[in-house]
């Protein structure tokens, strides 16, 4: 009996495998195309229909990495790591604090504040760009990372607050009582119960902050103009000009490199996602 059951389970699993792999191929094809193109000589990139490069060249990597006027792409990577790290830190701290307040604490006007938070997300950013620019310019922060980092420490991205709120609300209230019985106040509750138990949400916040900050270029375009402060996203735009020649080879090569940290971070962090709450157990 048992053996049969396992057998049919295997069969079904392999079906799932086939479906998942096929769909996975569609998902990953652009990446493969990007990587393959980055090794093709410039004239071959668009002229050849073959997926594999006829001749493999590293010239785009060397050329791209060299960057511009002595500032290499390595510096862009360093800058971006700094920026992204700060943003992650800011978002996790500030958003989880606000989320905790919204989800568990009782204070007047709570629902109104929550509604206001949602509303702040509903205005297209194109119309706030200029007032915001004026504001940061008055503070003399243009051409620094402050306009990009400070908002994260002030929990301006409601997306993450709301996300963490949803997760905290899924944590059973009885657990709170246990902490309270041990004589813990709201701060203890936050640090010892809520933060550990909403870990999947915090990890998600980190992953998204990493990826979105890494890719967001409009804010960076407006506030960072000095090449020494350039981020990867800006460095990549450097290869493109709608009125002239595009350096596709270098763009593809550096895009490939820039996807590596994203990929690594995703794989690294998602381990926590999977193991999240199940191993820790609900009984905490």
């Amino acid at each position: 009996m048992k053996a049969v059951k396992i057998g049919s389970g295997r069969l079904r699993l392999s079906w799932i495998h086939i479906i998942i792999s096929l769909a996975g191929l569609i998902m990953i094809y652009p990446l493969l195309w990007l990587v393959s193109s980055s090794f093709k000589p410039a004239l071959e990139i668009f002229n050849s229909t073959s997926f594999w490069p006829k001749t493999v060249t590293l010239e785009h990597y060397l050329q791209g990495w060299a960057g511009l006027s002595g500032v290499s792409f390595g510096q862009f990577f360093g800058n971006t790591f700094f920026l992204v790290g700060m943003c992650m830190l800011g978002n996790v701290i500030a958003c989880s604090m606000a989320a905790y307040a919204f989800a568990r604490l009782d204070f007047s006007l709570r629902n109104i504040w929550f509604a206001i938070m949602l509303v702040t997300m509903m205005l297209p950013f194109h119309v706030t760009v200029i007032p915001q620019y004026i504001l940061f310019n008055k503070l003399d922060w243009v051409n620094t990372y402050w306009p990009l980092i400070l908002p994260k420490f002030l929990a301006v991205e409601g997306f993450f607050i709301f996300l963490i709120v949803q997760f905290i609300r899924s944590i059973p209230r009885d657990l709170d009582e246990a902490v309270k019985m041990d004589g813990g106040g709201p701060i203890k509750l936050y640090l010892y119960l809520i933060v550990p138990l909403s870990l999947p949400a915090l990890i998600t916040t980190m992953i998204f902050t990493f990826i979105w900050t890494w890719n967001d270029f409009f804010g960076q375009l407006l506030y960072i103009s000095e090449i020494e402060l350039y981020t990867v996203a800006l460095g990549l735009r450097m290869f493109l000009d709608a009125m002239g020649q595009n350096n596709w080879g270098a763009l593809f090569a550096m895009s490939t490199l820039s996807l590596i940290p994203l990929f690594v971070v995703f794989i690294f962090f998602q381990r926590y996602l999977i193991e999240g709450i199940t191993t820790g157990g609900l009984k905490g």
């Binding site: 701290i93 500030a94 604090m97 606000a98 905790y100 307040a101 919204f102 604490l105 009782d106 204070f107 709570r110 504040w113 206001i116 938070m117 702040t120 706030t128 007032p131 915001q132 504001l135 400070l150 908002p151 420490f153 002030l154 929990a155 301006v156 607050i161 106040g185 709201p186 701060i187 936050y190």
Partner: peptide, 20 residues
């Protein structure tokens, strides 16, 4: 306590969000 935890967000709301 509620407003303590909400403080960073409130600060951001009244400066970075509300002004623009």
């Amino acid at each position: 306590v509620g407003y303590l935890f909400l403080a960073p967000w409130l600060l951001g709301l009244f400066t970075l969000s509300a002004i623009p």
